[in-house]
Computed example of a mutant assay.
Amino acid sequence: MAVGISGASGFLYGLRLLEMLRELGIETHVTVTRAALLTMVHETSFKLSDVEARADFLYRPDDVAASISSGSFKTMGMIIAPCSMKTLAEIAQGVTSGLASRAAEVTLKERRKLVLLARETPLTQSHLTNMLTVTQMGAIVAPPVPAFYAKPESIDDLVDQTLGRVLDLFDLDAAQVRRWVKTP
């Protein structure tokens, strides 16, 4: 699985996603944007070495020769968690300034699943237009919106529920997901 971590708030989504994929035995090919490194410093006590410890392969953000930048390198798809509006705009417009958006573009051209945890609010018209564009291109925009029916007790519960639902899109069952069940 290709994983991008971009500079939107929510660095924890990307880090926890890597842990969940490892628990499921899924090989990960990861890139972290420069802006994500800044977000990591402001939001967490983690370091890039913590990402590296959770990734099977970690590529520099400018390494457009990385395996995941080529359609001939097979992956089950890509998740960008979180996905900044800059990264989303690059994907929508086909203008790739780094590996995260390049790998996403490759994912789309190869007709593989691309899921973007778009993390911004409120949304401008350009944000919404770009979301529509990437959706029309085949991506899935999945903002990390809390599912309160799961009765979360912590931030970790909220993160796990969101990421579990994202993994559902790849038919990967993360045991952390609390499913909606109508009670009589």
Rank of each mutant, 00 (worst) to 15 (best):
A2R: 04
A2Q: 04
G7E: 10
A8D: 00
S9M: 01
G10A: 12
L12T: 07
L12W: 06
L12V: 10
G14E: 01
L15F: 00
L15A: 00
L17C: 03
E19I: 07
M20C: 02
R22A: 05
R22H: 03
L24Q: 12
I26G: 09
I26S: 01
E27P: 09
E27T: 15
T28K: 03
H29L: 04
T31F: 07
V32D: 01
T33A: 00
R34Y: 02
A35D: 11
A35Y: 09
A35M: 08
A36I: 02
M40G: 01
V41W: 07
F46G: 11
F46K: 03
K47V: 00
L48G: 04
S49D: 02
D50T: 08
D50L: 05
D50F: 04
V51I: 15
A53F: 09
A53H: 03
R54N: 11
L58R: 15
Y59L: 11
R60F: 12
P61N: 02
D62I: 07
D62L: 14
D62N: 07
V64Q: 05
A65L: 13
A66M: 08
S67E: 15
I68F: 06
S69V: 02
S70R: 05
G71V: 08
F73K: 12
M76T: 11
G77M: 09
I80P: 10
A81R: 06
P82W: 05
S84Q: 07
M85A: 09
T87Y: 13
Q93S: 13
G94K: 07
V95F: 09
T96L: 06
S97N: 08
S97V: 02
L99Y: 05
S101E: 01
S101A: 05
R102F: 13
A103V: 14
A103D: 11
E105L: 10
V106H: 13
E110V: 15
R111C: 14
R112F: 05
R112C: 06
K113Q: 04
V115F: 09
L117D: 00
L117T: 02
A118T: 12
T121R: 13
P122W: 14
P122T: 08
S126R: 11
S126P: 11
S126C: 11
L128Q: 12
N130H: 14
M131V: 15
M131L: 14
M137S: 15
M137Q: 15
G138W: 13
I140H: 10
V141D: 01
V141C: 00
P143A: 03
P144I: 03
V145I: 13
V145S: 13
